[in-house]
Write a protein that binds this DNA or RNA. Structure first.
Lengths: 132, 132, 132, 132
DNA sequence: GTGGTCTAGACCACC
DNA sequence: GTGGTCTAGACCACA
């Protein structure tokens, strides 16, 4: 699984890493029970500090994507990710709102918006098809 | 136009303010050429620092939502907001990606996602119909 | 509020600090809305690293005891602490079980145990009476 | 005697094992003089490392719950567990304090707390009645 | 001033 | 080997 961080981004490194792992799960390249690299080895691979990797892993653990075990390292949660609940739907709406508002301001119509969302959604399906 | 800031949010105040003004434009409560309150009066109204309001205005100006004139203060850009270009579409995709990935992980299907986006999009239409 | 850490304890420093703040809230020495020292000043006062203090604060924030604001620092949660829910009761039982098992092994009877718990519980009431 | 370890727990395996043996003694399923499985066989039964079982046994021996003899293996201490002394009472109080503080913060009153402790205490009585 | 992020390097517990 | 904790010191964003 390839990780690509943008040192110039305004998103913190640990958030970018967290997002890429989530995308890996969404696209089925990372499956329940799969082992992730150790914080040390991943940190070295992508050239960042191990604490930064650790912070991403801890957040993913807290969100229910991972389990971290004392010396087996981190695994994609074997039971899968917790399903969307009311709280998550609310948070998702809150996050989407300003982005959709701006898109509307910039002349993107409803159909263009849903098409974009569908394309992104389906891009995760495609990747899953081809991998093991 | 009612501004409601959450002092406990992780989002900085100026970002919250910026977003609410964008939503105001999206919902047509703020129209091209409309005057915004002065930095000073808005800061006092919502009880935050003057610099914070100024930072939000500056960002909106830089993004093309506002024009700021020495005499008249801030106006919603009379020519409307710059339409989406390739760069904006790319940025929008990049911002949407991790959210949609997480939604997919949490079992939200494509139809639920597009429905949510449509509801949010349309919520801006509705507001525009009834308010001034 | 006096903080006393035991460098020899097997509990990590940030846990000891977290516990003492919780005890401060239980005993009403810390009240909803009260400000806590900044991570830097507290770290200096008790002679530990600011990251260690920060970790304790972050945990307390996550547990709902504190709110941390960008530059106002940390406050005892103004709405009070989230009340015990089923999950919390379960966790409390799980934590208490081995301790009570050992106490029983060592010949402490039910009455002695409940008396001890009451004494501890009431010790938090007493402190609250005398402070401002 | 059934041992159930949670590989995802934050508590180390040897601590979980130690606690379950203590609970076995508290509930009278394990009686003074009873033989415990050998380190080797128990490790195999529950599928963990031999050193881990050994560490739990060693700790229990040090705490006075077990005697370990070269030939016979591990036995529940024939004279029973050392009774609570001042030091133990102090340690127990220190361990209970932060839990009770948090319970109080979360709105659990004194009666609810003592009831919970009694229920846990009595749960060890019940098991002892019916099992071997 | 505040907390947030990132780095670097140390030691320890677990298995 | 693994992650957990702690330290020290840097720079940045926020208000």
């Amino acid at each position: 699984m390839l990780i690509q961080l943008d040192m110039e981004s305004k998103d913190p490194l640990y958030t970018q890493l967290r997002n890429q792992i989530v995308e890996g799960i969404a696209s089925n390249r990372l499956k329940p029970g799969d082992a992730l690299p150790s914080v040390r080895s991943l940190a070295q691979d992508i050239g960042i500090n191990l604490h930064t990797v650790n912070k991403a892993y801890k957040q993913l653990e807290h969100e229910g994507f991972l389990v971290i075990q004392r010396q087996k390292g981190a695994l994609i949660h074997p039971d899968g990710v917790p399903q969307a609940d009311d709280f998550y739907w609310m948070e998702l709406s809150k996050a989407l709102r300003p982005m959709i508002a701006e898109a509307k301001c910039r002349g993107i119509d409803e159909h263009q918006l849903t098409t974009l969302c569908q394309e992104i959604y389906q891009s995760f399906n495609k990747k899953g098809d081809s991998s093991s």
